[in-house]
Write a protein that binds this DNA or RNA. Structure first.
Lengths: 124, 124
DNA sequence: CTGCATCCCGAGGGATACTG
DNA sequence: CAGTATCCCTCGGGATGCAG
């Protein structure tokens, strides 16, 4: 973690006066969907995954939601779609640089959750 | 950022095989509400705030949602409620240690959003 | 000032079946 | 294999009014 950068953040935080361009809250919107984080999570550890791989990794997700979420993430340039023109179809999804840069956020979330575990554990 | 801790995280990430106790995704649930992050955000910079202060800081929120979100955060021990038995009523909200520990997550979100700004800026 | 009660709405998400 | 097409429904959130 860059110390100067961190100071910058703190001073920005303190001086915030309702500024609409708030990086922080915008970033959070990226992760808002029910499945968004799970998909990014699996792509962070696997370089690239096919549609079916993601379905296997996240059994509860439906085709519709997987497609919808993937499309949304693609549009936000979090991930890319690589299509091989074969029969049967073969499509791979992988994080962009922007998507991979989410790793530190995931680390901090993990770290926080480890220190302050949730009592009412989430079942699924 | 602790390097050993980070290595731990990476190895956990790689070896994840559908483990239901996923700190990462549980932590994310904390921030899911529409107003949750905004409230924490304002408390991070102000030590303590009254109900009315939060309403002024987040004009778009309704009484109902402010109350609901505050109660939820209180139950999760993110913040505490201090009530002064005065007329008129006087209540203050402030982050717990657990709540304050969210700061690094907010820093990383801010940092990421600064590097990769969102084109279709969020209006409000 | 700080909230609760009530009623209401729509978007986000789910189920199922079908296709190139 | 990798999706579309439809239809359906829950529930998170909004509006308004009242109360201690």
């Amino acid at each position: 973690m860059d110390t100067n950068e961190y100071e910058d953040f703190l001073s920005n935080l303190k001086s915030y006066q309702g500024n609409p361009k708030c990086f922080l809250l915008q970033s959070l919107e990226i992760l808002h969907g029910k499945w968004t984080a799970k998909i990014i999570f699996h792509l962070l550890k696997s370089e690239s995954m096919r549609f079916g791989d993601l379905k296997k990794a996240i059994p509860a997700i439906t085709n519709t939601m997987l497609t919808t979420t993937l499309r949304a993430l693609e549009q936000q340039e979090i991930l890319n779609r690589r299509q091989y023109n074969e029969i049967p179809p073969h499509v791979e999804y992988f994080l962009t640089e922007k998507g991979s840069a989410l790793l530190p956020i995931f680390y901090e979330l993990w770290h926080w959750g480890k220190i302050y575990p949730i009592e009412n554990g989430i079942s699924e």
